[in-house]
Design a protein around this nucleic acid. Sequence first.
RNA 1: GCGCCUCUAGCUCAACUGGUUAGAGCAACGGACUCUUAAUCCGUUGGUUCCGGGUUCGAGUCCCGGGGGGCGUACCA
Length: 502
Amino acid sequence: MNEPTTALGLEGGAVDEFRKRLAKLDAMREAGVEPYPVRFDRTATAGELHERFDALEPGSETDEVVRVAGRMLLRRDQGKLVFATLRDGGDSIQLFVSRSVVGDALFEAFGELDLGDWIGVEGTVMTTRKGELSVRVSSFQLLSKALRPMPDKWHGLTDVDVRYRQRYVDLIANDDARRVFTVRFDAISALRECLLAKGFVEVETPVLHAVAGGATAKPFVTYHHALDTDLFLRVAPELYLKRLIVGGFDKVFEIARVFRNEGLSTRHNPEFTMLELYAALVDYNDIARLTEEMIADAAQRSIGTTRVEWDGHDIDLTPPFRRATMIDLIREHAHVEMHPSMPVADARAICDSFGVPWQADWGSGKLMLEVYEKTTEHALVAPTFVMDYPREVSPLARVHRDDPMLTERFELIVAGRELANAFSELNDPVDQRRRFEAQARLKALGDDEAQGVDDDYLRALEFGMPPCGGLGIGIDRLVMLLAGVTSIREVILFPHLRPEVQ
RNA sequence: GCGCCUCUAGCUCAACUGGUUAGAGCAACGGACUCUUAAUCCGUUGGUUCCGGGUUCGAGUCCCGGGGGGCGUACCA
């Protein structure tokens, strides 16, 4: 008998089970049957059969010959009759296997199958006396042998460590895991199609950056041997996308995996997905309208409604969302008047009164943001566009047309969490250079999240970038909201975990 | 990073204040059964109690160290 060569993580009884199943493989091959055949002609999926035949009366027989394939997850043995549940995609179909129909040899072979095996069957469509749609099997073949036992057929797999590390098993055992990812895929498709329909083009920009810019975040560093230089994994695609606006693509977007070398939590994974888009000739008010339309559309097309319940809150994603300035919202929730132009001493006093720690080099704009985050952001449950951020904390946003201390920037807050960030883009290369240099000074003072000066980006702006609105949406957080889950690991197929130890 | 919690059979869970040989359901194996739905019924196998030390006559249980995971918190999206 072959020894298991890949018995990773198997112990005790599981090794015996593994060996038993390997022995079945050997026996099949000796009998001239290939346990991993190369293909199977399927004529129907379980879902299609339900669509076509769910109206059949109990006890019906048809002449409809079908070939279905899937993973056998349950078996109910009645002696000379066996019922089995075949799982195919997200659907199931029952198999009706009668000794008198398939003959003794095939019937015995069916008994040799293990739960978890992939099989292909041919048979006719029928319903049982109790009305369960089934395939009356006339023949079957093994399509792939499962060497490892499936999780508990009733309780499934609940150990979150195993669920995340072995997502394939999670997807087999837990319907809800499949549901959550279906929401994710549908939402992303909806966002993409919505943008394509509006004339946006989907682009791909570099993941390896010489200068990590476009967001204040700590990057991952890697090393290019041939070039003998450090490179950074991108923290945002922003600066490349705006180069494309300079180049004359009027409307671009990218669904971008970005990487930030920061802590892990139920809201943070080291790599996550952002949708960023830029459109020439529009401002942040246009972008706000686009944002609420896109999010409502994604909700409608992924979960069929714009009303969601999340973490105990009822949230209505039906546009239009509330729009309010940060200054007004601070007044509303903290009952204080703040403005980036106020004396720093006054702003510090307000921070002190709310127990917000501050640093000596922060101006009133940064202090105002801190007060907002402490007192207001978490209270914004219904979707809210928080408008007009201080210039001091917005190095890439255009100065507000009516107030030189503010920028034309909004964040969309839902359930107290940031879902999107957008602004009328800064396209004045002289101003942009000054703001980069301010960031570079912070970096030199030890702020490892500050951005460096990106000279090539400045050069691009010097060729002239048209007026432009830009948006970033945190896809993982949007999906959490839509799927009703509170951990980001539930919406990332393979979330980052420490390496598995043996 | 820090704090709290957690880890028992392949899976889901038991095991009073430390006390015989660590149990049950599912899965697996053997048997019965031609309309089941987590099929049922009878029987059997399966354990490095995460790892390493320690205390004790005796440790799954208590202590120390290490590892994995969860939650909270900090940084952040």
